[in-house]
Design a binder for these strands. Structure first.
Lengths: 221, 221
DNA sequence: TATTTTTTTAGAAAATTTTCACATATTTAC
DNA sequence: GTAAATATGTGAAAATTTTCTAAAAAAATA
């Protein structure tokens, strides 16, 4: 689940990224409008979080620009919830509005609401075949046995399992599970697949992740 | 358990904070309305305590403002229990009302009533695995042996134990166990975890608090 | 003021992620 | 069918990130 944070203040952006990563998101940050706009238009983010310390006109324009071409939800973080600005921003296609400083819990509540992923889903288990993922516990099990997965392995396996019965291309995996700084020529994806497979084989399942040469990977129910 | 105290008189606020801390709460204080409103709206407090020495209109407005956006309970401390004011305040969404002077015990009784967890706050023991917390005695035991925990350590361990079997992110720990002034870049959290672990290891349990790298900590039953 | 508690600091240790060199498999061209 | 080209798999090491640790500094408390 990849999202973009746009903020002029690098510290703000990095704090947000750290917290959002703990929640399992893949986070790109842009510390100016231009880069923000570029990233927003050239990637498929599930959500954009936008710091309104940016100059007013710029941020309104930016929202409109993004919304003309993408249907991605936008959350604005603002210094003061000024009514006029607020209305203007909603007109520009903003989905939600949060006055600073806010608690991270509050932001997460808004994010869940917008992504239409109520907290319940987070508690729920994701099950395909013998494998069960529980993201609240950050626990993966195969035939009841615990798999000791790292954060990246967990995210990768989760992505594949959410797309069970379909072939997922390397490109889309890299786009959703890695952030913008990932090296597209490396084989880190293969390395991670390898290590998940090894852990699965060790515990139970020998052919959970199938390779579709030239295309990508697939998990079948 | 984080709460907010709003009072014009700094001494009052600090006295309340001290007493409430002794009861195990994490307490933010605001010595004017503006900051009070600001904190109330931007944090997830379990309770707001409100000194009515503040100008009447202000406090009514403040309550309404907070209640429009938050469902947090509010207790008002008033110089005289004037009936009219009282009614007006209840209209504004106040949950309880206490005329000064009052005993702290009395305030705590109201707090317990409002939080609708009369036992859990003070009387009940919290038990996970070998570890038992008794917040009434402020006593932590592992296999019957007493652990000499500081207040912060106790609060941190309690937070983790209340969320047993789930991964608790560093961010959410910082938000719930530390107050607004905590530095997000420090590693005071790790330092406290370390010192709890050392005390636990000394007495009994070697792997009570697990680290989930990149996410946070977890206690399993 | 003396004592305890909390926070900060900085370097060590641990864990994770990436890279690399080469192995193996698959596809394509002949 | 075979060889070349392409794509993926593999294990180990390097690089990076994250967490741990101990000790000193700062703050709170008695």
């Amino acid at each position: 689940m990849r999202i973009l944070v746009i903020a002029d203040n690098e510290t703000t952006a990095k704090c947000l990224r750290t917290s959002l990563r703990e929640e399992g998101f893949v986070v790109d940050i842009a510390i100016d409008c231009e880069r923000g706009s570029f990233l927003a238009l050239t990637n498929d983010y599930k959500l954009i979080i936008f710091d309104h310390a940016l100059p007013r006109k710029q941020s309104k324009c930016l929202c409109q620009e993004i919304r003309e071409k993408k249907s991605v939800p936008i959350i604005i973080l603002s210094e003061k919830a000024e009514v006029l600005t607020k209305v203007a921003l909603f007109d520009a296609g903003v989905d939600d509005f949060l006055a600073k400083p806010f608690s991270f819990e509050e932001l997460m509540a808004r994010i869940r609401a917008i992504l239409r992923r109520p907290q319940k889903i987070k508690n729920q288990e994701l099950r395909v075949g013998n494998v069960i993922l529980n993201s609240k516990k950050h626990e993966a099990r195969c035939k009841g046995q615990l798999l000791q997965l790292t954060k990246k392995e967990f995210a990768l396996l989760e992505y594949l399992m959410r797309h069970k019965n379909e072939v997922v291309s390397r490109t889309s995996i890299l786009e959703h599970v890695w952030d913008i700084d990932s090296n597209p020529f490396s084989n880190t994806l293969e390395a991670h697949i390898r290590s998940i497979r090894r852990k699965l084989e060790l515990k139970c399942d020998n052919n959970f992740i199938k390779t579709i040469p030239g295309i990508g990977y697939k998990i079948e129910k």
